[in-house]
Amino acid sequence: MTRFPGPIRAQDPAPAPLPLLSVRGLAVDFDGPRSRIWGPPSRVRVLEDISFDLAPGETLGLVGESGSGKSTLGRAVLRRLPLADGRIVFDGRDITHLPLAERRALSRDIQMVFQDPYTSLNPRMTVLELIAEPLIVHGLAPGPEAARDRVAELLRLVNLPPENIDRFPHGFSGGQRQRIGIARALALRPKLIIADEPVSALDVSVRAQVVNLMQDLQQELGISYLFVAHDLSIVRHISHRIAILHRGRMVEMADCDTLYDSPAHPYTSTLLQAVPEPDPRHRRGTPTAPPPAPRMADLVMEGGACRYCRSCPKVADRCHAEAPALARQPGRDRWVACWEA
């Protein structure tokens, strides 16, 4: 698979195959603290200069500590958040500025799997009603009963026995509920599924089942995934490429093996060192202290400096003056935002 991720620059060759999703220079602002009681809220940049491409049938893993903006990025692509800057092109169509009605129609092609399977299913709807809902909303079925066959087929697709079709979600385990959530997302045959930590709320023993199911579905249906997670081993298992987010910026993006075997950005190495090693004979050395969690005030005040410069072991003078942009390493399919890499 040929991929041309990252910001398009003058010297880049023209992207060859059309990516399913291409994001350029995306930025999202949230309201921050007010300087005066009645004054306007300050703006906090929670995502800045995010650029990547996603090919059809590809999985891009989004990894970062909490507060790094990985879920926000997923919601920005779904167009559920106003963008401060940047452009999103999905399937050859610019979806940066879409009226509400078209945004709703977009949900036929972009769907989402949620983190918590216990609260993301309406407790008063049966499995049939839950999975038939997208079909009804998009005019593909007049009512739940008319969609019964389709729903049974979807249940088989996610390895749930179709006899369960008339039951309510409270009778299912977490893994089974997440399958219902996946069946719901699949009902419209989307091209892209945004999976927001789909297994982090699940029991460790069923995580692999759900992740494998998602992989099988990808092979069968050719779906692309934007897979948000903080569990590095699961991300490695499912993703073709991985992007590391730190405080709203993409610091590194590369294919799995490159990133895990030779991390280029100092933050990536710190993150990888934090993964517990199950084999006691296999020591990686003491991990460096984890970087302190970002406070909102820090994000407001930070000007041009690299957002990692306070915790970075390789920090140089230049890092305090100017933030490095995500740039492709010469001759490799790896993108890093660091002066020292």
Binding site: R104, A105, S107, R108, F114, S120, R124, V137, R184
Partner: peptide, 26 residues
């Protein structure tokens, strides 16, 4: 703020349907 309302919105439900089928029964 509960995920199942967001899920309904992501599926493309309009406000009328969400109020009638997702919020009112609860």
């Amino acid at each position: 703020a509960t995920p199942f309302i967001e899920a309904a919105e992501v599926l493309g439900c309009g406000p009328g349907r969400i109020l009638r089928l997702h919020i009112l029964p609860n």
